[in-house]
Every structure is written in structure tokens, then in C-alpha cells.
Amino acid sequence: MNAIMSRWIDDSRLMGIVFLAPATLYIVLLVGLPFVTALLFSVSTATVGDASFNYVGLRNFANVWQTPAFRDALVNTFSFTVIAQICTIILANILAQLLTTPLPQRRSGRIGMWIARMLLILPWATPLSLSVVGWLWMFDSKYSPIDYIFRELALLGPGTVWGPANNLIWLGKPLLAKASIIFVHVWRMTPLATVILMAGLSSIPTDLLDQAEVDGSRYFRTLFQVKLPLIMPIMLISLLFGFIFTFGDLTVVYILTRGGPITHTLTLPMYSFLVGIDGGNLAQGAAVSLFIFPVLLLVAVVLLRTASRAEVR
């Protein structure tokens, strides 16, 4: 018995298969199968009520492409993602700079820094659906605390700049709704990006920064010509991570606006959900969601190539 066991354990081929099996199974069952199903649905006439397979070629894609709502969703998905990523990376850079600035060696300073870093990570640590519900209340059309602050500052209400209404109705106006969605994405992604950038900044050898100082470089030159170029690969990784998260996100839009007003905040995942699940048209829903795929594939390829190159350096 023991002899057989040890023969198996020494067989690296067999053991390789055994060790890889759980991960392979996981990927095949939970990623591969749904993906293939989506591919099949997208070229069929499947609905929630009738999953029988009738091949219709690319008709679903053509139909979806001609829907104005789809065009809106496409534009929104890209613009939300790009704008949110730009804001995130700028904010994260500023925060990471601040949080890696050496403080005077005082106890209060160290505790303060610790608290600041912990607070920073909270938005990332909170379950997204819960925190977005929180934001739903923040943007409430009547009881929004943001509106309350603006009213107290005499910016909102009768006879003020943004008056005479007492509320901005964040999620009810196209531009404000878009801004709200982007804001929540930025709020959500900034912590992770900051932590990644902080890791990058602290990996810069201190010799190099001392050298820049001796060479006569001041703060902004050191920042833009030494620090940022050095953390560029890691920054790109953080950017692409954020891109993937934001691009494929359903939660924020679903909870805040469900794509409204009308289709002004509709995104591809949201539209796919509305058509495929709420509307019951599995085939078209699948077609919509498959538009996301090539974009994410491209981003993932760039991401992995950047990551491997960053490792070499």
C-alpha cells in the first residue's frame, strides 16, 4: 500500500494533474461554461421561457447594434470608465505622495498616519453593494446630506446661485447622474490605486531620491522626472485593474439609477441585464454582454504583458 502511494507521489505528471485539477475545474465550470453558453445564446433565439436552440447567425448582434439604447450604453461605459480612471489615478497619486511623506519621528505622527491609512482603505474593504446603498441615500432627491450642506452654505435654495429649488436631484438629471456614477467609481477605486502606488513609491531606492536631491532637483522635478517614471509600470497595472473593474461593473449603476434617467447612465452590463434577465430575451442580452468581451480581453492582454515586463526591471 505504502509502496504504491509513494510511487504515485513521486510521479510528477500524476501529481501535477492532481494539483491542477481543482483550479482547472473551477475555471471550466464557472468561467468556461457560462462563456460558451453566452456564445451559444448570442447566436440563437433563446428567451427565459424557451431555451431551445435555433441558430440565427449574427442577427442578434446586428439588432442590438441598431438600438439607440445600446449606443448610449456603449458610449457611457467607455466614458465612465475612462473619466473615472483619470480621476482615480490623479487622486491616488496625490494621496500616495502624501501618505509616503516621512513625518517627524513623533508618536502622534505615526498614529495619525496609521489612522489615515486605515480610513483610506475602508471604501475598498466595504462590500460594494452596501456602500453604494449608502451613496444612494447621499444622492437622495429630497434628503441628500450633500444638498443640506449646500443649503447651509447658501449655495442652494430660493434666492441662491443654484436655487430656487431646494434639491439638486442628483440622480434625476442626466449630467448630475453621470457625475454621481463616476464619482462613486472613483471613490471606490481610489483606495486600491493608492495602495498600489504607495507600494510602488516605497520600492524606489532611497539612494535614487537622495541623488536627485544632491543633483539639485526640487519637489516637482523629482516627482515628474524621477518618481513617476519609475512607478509607471505599476501605475499602468493599477490603471488597468481599475479599467476592468469599472468597465464590467453592474452594482453601482444598478443600485443608483438602473440606467436612468431614460438611458443617460445606461452601461453595457446594465443593458445586458435589462434585456436578458428583466426583459427575458437571453439571446440579445448575451449579445450585448459579448460586446464587453473583446475590450476586456485587450485590456487583460496589455495588463499581463505590462506586469511581466515590470517584473523584469
Binding site: 544632491v214 543633483d215 539639485g216
Partner: peptide, 18 residues
Amino acid sequence: PRKRGIAMVFQSYALYPH
């Protein structure tokens, strides 16, 4: 340092890799 008129070579050479 920049106002001292000095230059320094570090043990690691600290060349800017980029």
C-alpha cells in the same frame, strides 16, 4: 544640498534607470 555646490556618488551609483 542644491545650494551647497557639492556633488555626490553613492555606493550603488544611484543611476536613474529610466
